[in-house]
Design a protein around this nucleic acid. Structure first.
Lengths: 132, 132, 132, 132
DNA sequence: GTGGTCTAGACCACC
DNA sequence: GTGGTCTAGACCACA
């Protein structure tokens, strides 16, 4: 696994790492049980403070995305979400609404936005074993 | 215009205000040229520090959402986005991707997500060109 | 609120703080909505690094014990536990079992242990308004 | 004796082993003088680093739970606790208090907690003096 | 070797 | 003023 960090981004470095791990899992590039690079290794590769990487890992652990066994590295946890459906809907529609509103203010029409949305869905659907 | 603020939300107060103005414009509830409540009026109503409201207004002015004439308050600016299309696409697909990845980790399937997306589009479609 | 830290304890400082806040809430000494001392203030009083205090606060926030509004300090959150009952039972009986086993190995008989348990319950029951 | 280890638990593996030995002794499943499996045997069965098992045994020896005679393996020591009563009380009430506070924050009422406590006591009472 | 804790000190976002 | 992020570096617990 290779991370790509933009130090100038307003998004904190540790969240950029979280984003990328979550994306790669969703894309099927990282499979359940697969090991992530160690904190020190990642810190060295990216020339970033180990504490920052550790923070990203801690965050993912608490979100249930990965499991870390102290002294034995971190690996991808099985998919499991304890949230009930109404909460999920609230969170996701809130995010989607923000995108739609932004699109409006950028003068992007709904067809175009829907098209981009669909293209992304296709990308993230490739991970279904039988579909490939 | 009435704002609804959740002080405990992780989303900063000033961005909650920006969100709501942008949403109401996109919904056609706020029309071009319409005036927004003054900073001090809003601050009093919401019992929030005026600096916070001022920051929200400054942010919206920068984004070209509103225009403020000193002494005459703020009003909704005409829709206009100077960004070029590839930039728009990058910004919006980045946001959409994050939603899709989050949906995956919440174990929400693509059909459900697409349905929620479509429902939102309908809501924001009511105020089409001919309505203005 | 005054904290009492034992730097020599094997229990990490940040957890000692969490323990004390949770205990004081359970005792009714800290009420819902009440503000906690600021991170910097606490750090100065205890002569402990602010990051350590911040970590304790972050931990409590994620446990839902307190809410922090950036720029406006932290306060006690309303009591709410999203766990379902079987999970609660598993967690608590696991802890209780460990105490009982330890008591056995210390040669403390069950009557004595039960007595200590009851005395503690009484202490933590005083917080019911009408009982006082 | 068969150990059951959850590698993903936040409780260290070596302590899980200690927990289980102490519990089985308290339950009367392991009697004084009875021999424990060897370090290397256990390590092989559980597919765990022998150092981890050795650490668990060292810990139990220090606590006076078991005695190890070099070359002759480990066996259960006679029950004996050198602590004075006030120390025992301090240690155990500290643990009990933590359970009670946790129960409060999980919104588990005192009746329920007391019931769980009593049920556990019954389990651990089956192996009373006369049974040995 | 792994990750976890704590310190010290800088800078930023928010109110 | 508040808390959040990041860096740098020490020490410890765990496997």
């Amino acid at each position: 696994m290779r991370f790509h960090i933009q130090p100038t981004s307003s998004r904190p470095v540790y969240l950029q790492i979280v984003d990328q791990v979550k994306r790669d899992i969703a894309l099927g590039l990282l499979l359940e049980g697969e090991r992530l690079p160690t904190v020190r290794e990642t810190a060295a590769t990216l020339a970033i403070n180990p504490n920052t990487i550790a923070k990203a890992y801690r965050q993912m652990e608490q979100e249930g995305i990965i499991v870390t066994r102290s002294g034995a590295g971190a690996s991808v946890a099985p998919l499991e979400s304890g949230l009930n459906k109404s909460v999920k809907k609230r969170i996701l529609t809130e995010q989607l609404q923000r995108v739609i509103v932004d699109a409006f203010h950028m003068d992007v029409d709904q067809e175009t936005l829907t098209q981009w949305f669909s293209q992304l869905l296709v990308q993230f659907n490739l991970k279904e074993p039988s579909d490939v």
